[in-house]
Design a binder for these strands. Structure first.
Lengths: 210, 210
DNA sequence: AGGTACGTAACGAGCGTTCGGTATGTAAGG
DNA sequence: CCTTACATACCGAACGCTCGTTACGTACCT
């Protein structure tokens, strides 16, 4: 039986913490074994003991990112429909330091993800999941009459709207990260409300063009 | 008087071309002096002759990106107002291979830009310019009655709407880059039209909340 | 004893950068 | 018109550094 001293999982958790801190202030481009080791005050050999290769550590770093995203504290979901969607969006935006760090890491991972096929596919999946999380709120909003279109509106239509909502959110994230002074929490919140208000409105009866 | 043989600027243009090709298939993370040198079949010493340091070459690479963005072929501006805005947005999105390459490079530069203060400020400026390019279209659209609000609508309001439009566009860019199959040109175009249609609509008279 | 958990030290590769050398041109002097 | 002088353009090799990775040694636990 292995000694299982000090608990292997606990150690990996320590590594996760160090990986996260390193990512937060150097980005993925600055994620090196030595940087992580220095952050937690150990040797690179120790890291290799828990992650056989750098690639394994990068993959783990992305897991940490996803876990932190999933487990982050969230504001109360006020209700179904648009109000819930609003809360969801506000939980994504960089309104507090922690959110900023998480989004910064996220954006910084895109360089790697675009260069590596597998990581790119993971990223695409993450977006698909994000849209799936948005969709129910849109459907509820339609049922509640907060959004035009009936409950039996085309599935493709809802997908597309979910993608638009996600696009707005992440596009705002990027701008806010680069220019936090121009996008303080109040502005971001106001933009979310403005965006949601535009969704609420009745559309003209016919589409402008194809 | 300096010899000014072979035209220095022409050489720098050759370097720009090689830098662009390197960026397009390796991203900013893969932008190394040796890679660029290999792409144009010269030595790294030659590169240092035209760019004293790697940082200078990175800055130049961002200039190339901006120049390529500014000089890209664009579809005809059909008119003022929303139609012009629509054309502007379609010119941003990755609808053709060239656009995809340009956007890929753009997104890949964010990792570096977030880690380096100066580059980050440049990026913020680029976004400010992008919003400034959008704003006139919004004002025209308001004058034409295509958008709610009068011509004397708050400047801050227009700024915010411009930021929302840019957010939508770049958020869609990122999703499309990672999942081109789910976001073919037709879907992207349809999303733009849907987004613009939602702007067109009359808003409810009062805001939902703060 | 033997396996686990590290630290230490080193390897080879790749990086940005530096340096010396060799062309190749213009400019000046006889 | 040839020569000398000098700056530019560029190559090839090397330096010093950091990277990921490996090898080896040691302390500890069972």
């Amino acid at each position: 039986m292995p000694p299982a001293r000090g608990d292997r999982d606990a150690r990996r958790e320590d590594v996760s913490e160090a990986v996260w801190r390193t990512l937060a202030d150097k980005g993925f481009g600055g994620l090196t074994l030595r940087a992580v080791a220095a952050t937690m005050g150990v040797s690179t050999g120790m890291l290799m003991h828990y992650f056989p290769t750098k690639h394994a550590l990068v993959v783990h770093a992305l897991d940490v990112l996803e876990k932190r995203t999933a487990d982050r504290p969230r504001r109360d979901r006020p209700a179904e429909g648009l109000a819930a969607l609003r809360a969801t969006l506000l939980d994504i935006l960089p309104l507090a330091p922690d959110d900023t760090a998480r989004n910064r890491v996220w954006v910084s991972s895109w360089d790697l993800a675009l260069a590596d096929g597998d990581l790119g596919a993971d990223q695409a999946d993450r977006y698909a999941r994000m849209r799936s999380a948005i969709r129910p709120h849109l459907e509820a909003a339609r049922r509640l009459g907060e959004l035009p279109g009936s409950a039996d509106t085309d599935r493709a239509d809802t997908d597309q709207l979910a993608a638009t909502v996600v696009a707005f959110a992440h596009g705002l994230v990027v701008q806010a990260l680069f220019d936090p002074e121009r996008f303080p929490p109040a502005v971001q919140t106001s933009m979310v409300d403005g965006f949601l208000r535009s969704l609420t409105a009745e559309r003209p009866t016919r589409a402008p063009d194809a």
